[in-house]
Amino acid sequence: MFSYCTDPSSLEGLVWLSCYLTSGTHLLFYASFGTVLILLAITAPVALLFGYGGAMAARSSIAPLRWFGKLYTSMVRGVPDIIFFLFVPIALDQGFEWLRHQALCDSSQPVWQGNDFVVCDAAKLPLNTSAAWVHDAYGIFLAVIAFSVVFGAFAANVLFGAMQAVPRAQLETAEAYGMTRRQVTRRVLVPQMWTYALPGLSNLWMILIKATPLLFLLGVEDVVYWARELGGAKTSAFSYPHPDWRLYYFLALLVFYLLMTWASERVLGRVTQRLSRGQATMGGDAQRKGAVA
């Protein structure tokens, strides 16, 4: 990074530290915080979409669809999320490659050869020739899907509850105006449910933030991976030998997560206030009273 860093072994004190903290591996460590934020930014809306689909399925009048929705929403109550994280990406990866194998290759070749899962070169995902970033992006893509499946089920639970909580009278009024079932859903149910869903969704966001270190289990080189890698004792084979510093690296991660939580709490508090405006709830009543006084 800095010009004086060419020979780290001759440096001492703060100068050494400034070089150490800007080494190539540290830059990758800092970039991995971006990975976490990207994952959050993508997963949240996708999981919400999954959740919306799940909740609508659970309310469906078609029985098999309803059963599927109910099964999906109750799945995460019974099984720890880590088991899904260990399971879903591998299953997805092999599923995609199998599909491509059927489409692009000589499908008479078996995919399983003994222990080996082999698809032809053209069916590899990503292709062997792809750049390293494509492989990384694909890994994150699988992680996003795994997170979305799990958090989608949570979100479906919240949204289902919120839809049930919308006052029946409001829906009946809409029906009395001659709206069809679809219109009632689109014009009244969905706009009205958010205020009921928000406490649950805020909580879900908090859980999602705190689940991001599990990315590490999915083989993504995230903050935990780098904290462990950089913090471990380094011999003189490395440019910056140092003893075991993992505790400090993990304390840094702790601070990062506390900051994330703190910021989220503030933002979500504002959104809650905004959404309670004019609602027939305790929060809405309190705001009305405040406005009068």
Partner: peptide, 16 residues
């Protein structure tokens, strides 16, 4: 693996 010097490890300077 990238964590087993001197067989394989990550170069501080480049991250490779």
């Amino acid at each position: 693996e990238g964590a087993y010097p001197p067989y394989n490890f990550i170069d501080d300077a480049t991250g490779e």
